[in-house]
Amino acid sequence: MEKPKLEFLEILRGGKNLLAFSSGADSTALYFLLKSYGINFDIAIVDYGTRCQSILEIQRAKTLCFWDNKQCHILKSPKIEKNFEHNARIIRYEFFQSLALKETYTNIVLAHQLDDKFEWFLMQFCKGTNINAMLIQPHITQRIKDYEYNILRPMLGISKQEILNYLREQKIFYFEDFSNSNTHFKRNYFRYHFTHKILEEFKKGIAFSFKLLEESKLTLALDDLGGYYCFTSTPKDLYAIDLAYKKLGYILSKKQKFQIQKYLNQQEYSLVFGDKIALEKRNNKIYIFPYLLNVRINKQEREIYRKMNLPKKFRQFYHYQQSLKKLPT
């Protein structure tokens, strides 16, 4: 069996990573997959105290970290009286966020997989909502105060059955959460009645449909901001960049796309194609705009643009746009 492929490996290799762990099948598989790809990480686990085996799950997490020389962050959750799923989610995400700030983790890694993605889609679709709410995002950048970190889901293209096959083949132990069989929980109801059965037969088509939906969502989000485009960097950067260039009247060649691809995982870069359209990345934002030269900016204005954290080439275009607004009509 071929080893399941993870997304975001370059981002993970360049960051300080925290894996959300539970000792269940998904997070256990992700633990060993990250190890196999040479990714360094620590783990965080929440003990909700609702099941007898939670003591054993915590011990399993501590044992893995002891042998692999990793930090194991543990939170003993307060008792949740009602709306367990919702409040448990709040507790664990606040825990992960506090660790990111305190320990300067740049990536929080979650073990959601394709079945989870499809299950969420069906739940939201049946509830009645828009496409944005139906899709689990593989990569989200969060900013708290002056600190920025990523939430990454590198297994969204891998099905539950592939995960179980991997664990079985590698003879890796994991705990079965028996609450997953309780169809009182809505997610379990959808999982038992719909998700598994449909994915067994239509996995490839569903995965491809998700890809198209995410690209459609990106197209809708790519708005003209007054002759230029600016959007948060995601794993779909190349697609969005290509689309923005087309909207500005420039068609990127295959060679130019390969050139862009080499820079995508860098924190900052600045490129110009055809002496016409510039592309810059700064502070996790992508800027695409007409390239302007010799725009005069005085010292005071330069300092303002520096504090705004605008890319250097974009400052000239932005200054020119601002000067046009000041002209009498």
Rank of each mutant, 00 (worst) to 15 (best):
F185T: 05
S159H: 13
T183A: 03
M308G: 02
L252S: 01
K5D: 12
K127N: 14
Y291L: 03
F190K: 01
K326G: 01
R296P: 00
R315M: 15
G24Y: 10
A207P: 00
F231S: 03
Y229C: 00
S54I: 11
Y239G: 00
N188S: 09
K127Y: 15
I90M: 07
L101Y: 10
Y228V: 07
G249M: 08
G49C: 09
N17C: 07
I260A: 03
A240H: 00
C65I: 04
K312E: 15
I11W: 14
D237I: 02
Q267N: 09
S77G: 05
R153G: 00
Y166P: 00
G205M: 10
I55G: 02
D26V: 08
F194D: 08
K3N: 09
N309G: 06
E214G: 02
Y166D: 02
K313N: 14
W67N: 06
L225A: 08
V46R: 01
K204H: 13
E2Y: 14
V295K: 09
A240P: 00
I288M: 05
Y239K: 02
I136F: 04
H319C: 10
I304F: 15
L238M: 06
Q322P: 01
K3G: 05
K35A: 05
K171Q: 13
F84K: 13
T195S: 14
Q267K: 10
N132V: 09
F41G: 02
K285L: 14
K160L: 08
L18N: 03
H139M: 12
F231N: 03
D47I: 05
M134R: 11
Y93V: 06
E280V: 04
N165Q: 15
K197E: 15
E214L: 07
K257H: 04
F125K: 12
Y48M: 06
Y318P: 00
I151W: 03
A88F: 11
Y287N: 00
M123A: 11
K285V: 09
K145C: 05
P78H: 14
C72P: 01
K3V: 15
R302H: 15
L99H: 07
C126S: 12
I163E: 02
D26C: 06
D224P: 01
Y37D: 10
T234Q: 03
F175Y: 14
R187P: 00
N298T: 13
I151V: 14
N298E: 12
G227N: 08
D47S: 06
D146T: 13
Y269S: 02
M134N: 05
T195Y: 11
K82A: 12
K285G: 01
R315G: 01
E10L: 05
E119R: 07
L292C: 11
C72E: 03
T195R: 03
S253D: 07
Y105T: 06
Q300D: 13
Y320Q: 07
Q71F: 14
S98E: 15
K326E: 15
I136K: 05
K255N: 11
I288Y: 07
Y305K: 06
K79C: 06
K281H: 06
L19G: 01
I172H: 05
Y31K: 04
E94R: 12
F96I: 02
L9C: 03
